[in-house]
Simulated scan of single mutants.
Amino acid sequence: MKIVVISDTHMPKKAKALPHQVVTELQKSDLIIHAGDWQTVEVYHKLLQYGEVKGVFGNVDSDEVSSLLPEKLIIEVEGFKIGVVHGHGKRWTTERRAVEAFSETPVDCIIFGHSHIPVLKVVNGVLLFNPGSCTDKRRQPKPSFGIISVNNGLHAEHVFFEKE
């Protein structure tokens, strides 16, 4: 199973369309996960053209997006539990807020966004994954998104690309 993971698309403010590198992978995906800051519901509908979409709302999303999506969710994929949360808030770091969001519920992986900083590491046996942003790289060298492969385990990787 191939999961494409994106976050912080901030469309249409930061981009009018998804980069072609992302679209190419979306066309080959089994599931799409968005970790918030879509900005408008049109991004959700655009992603639905490529397949099943799961996601959460972020701190800059429209009322329409936040009424459509939860603040956090757990997705079960081939026996693995994947927690998804945007990670915004006032206390701690983005990463710590993401981990704290699932402190009461055991998960195998936590996907989060908000910081636009790609993260891939294992902490206390939990895979922590922030795909970065494919449309608003901020101070990162390149835009990015993620791919998680599920095959007798979870394998996550970042895809970094040159801005179009």
Rank of each mutant, 00 (worst) to 15 (best):
V119K: 14
H86C: 00
V22Y: 05
N130M: 02
E64T: 13
G89N: 11
F161L: 11
Q27R: 14
V159I: 07
K137Y: 13
L73N: 04
P12M: 13
V65Q: 00
P70C: 04
I147P: 03
G55H: 11
Y44D: 06
T135E: 11
F129M: 09
L31P: 00
G79T: 05
E71R: 04
A98V: 01
V60N: 09
K14E: 12
V22T: 01
S29M: 00
K142S: 15
I6H: 06
H114V: 10
V123W: 15
I82K: 05
I147N: 07
V60F: 06
K2M: 15
K16A: 08
V122L: 15
M1K: 13
P19K: 02
G83Y: 08
L47C: 00
N152W: 09
V60S: 07
F161W: 06
I117D: 10
T94N: 07
H86M: 05
W92K: 14
K46S: 05
L48Y: 02
Q49W: 03
L154G: 04
K46A: 05
D37Y: 01
V4K: 02
S149C: 05
V65P: 01
P143K: 06
L120H: 15
L47E: 13
V23P: 01
L69T: 05
S149L: 13
S115H: 15
I33C: 10
L47Q: 10
I33R: 01
A98C: 08
A15C: 09
V84R: 00
G55A: 00
I82S: 05
W38S: 07
L127C: 13
P118R: 09
F57M: 05
I32H: 03
S7E: 13
F129H: 03
E25L: 01
V22K: 11
I110S: 10
C134I: 04
K81C: 07
V23T: 08
P19I: 05
E25C: 03
N130I: 08
P131L: 11
S133N: 11
F145W: 00
R138G: 11
L26C: 05
G36W: 02
H114G: 13
H114F: 14
I75E: 03
S66I: 03
I6V: 04
T94V: 15
H114Q: 11
E76Q: 09
V60H: 08
L120T: 15
I82D: 07
A98L: 14
F161Q: 03
L154P: 12
W92P: 03
L18I: 01
P141E: 02
S67L: 12
S29Q: 09
K2V: 11
V41H: 12
F112Y: 15
K46H: 06
G153R: 08
H116N: 14
H45L: 04
K13M: 15
A35E: 04
V41S: 03
S144D: 09
G55V: 07
I148M: 13
R96I: 14
H88M: 10
V53Y: 01
N124W: 10
S66T: 07
S66V: 06
K13W: 00
E25A: 05
G153I: 08
K14F: 08
V53A: 11
L73D: 00
K163M: 02
W38M: 06
M11S: 06
I32A: 14
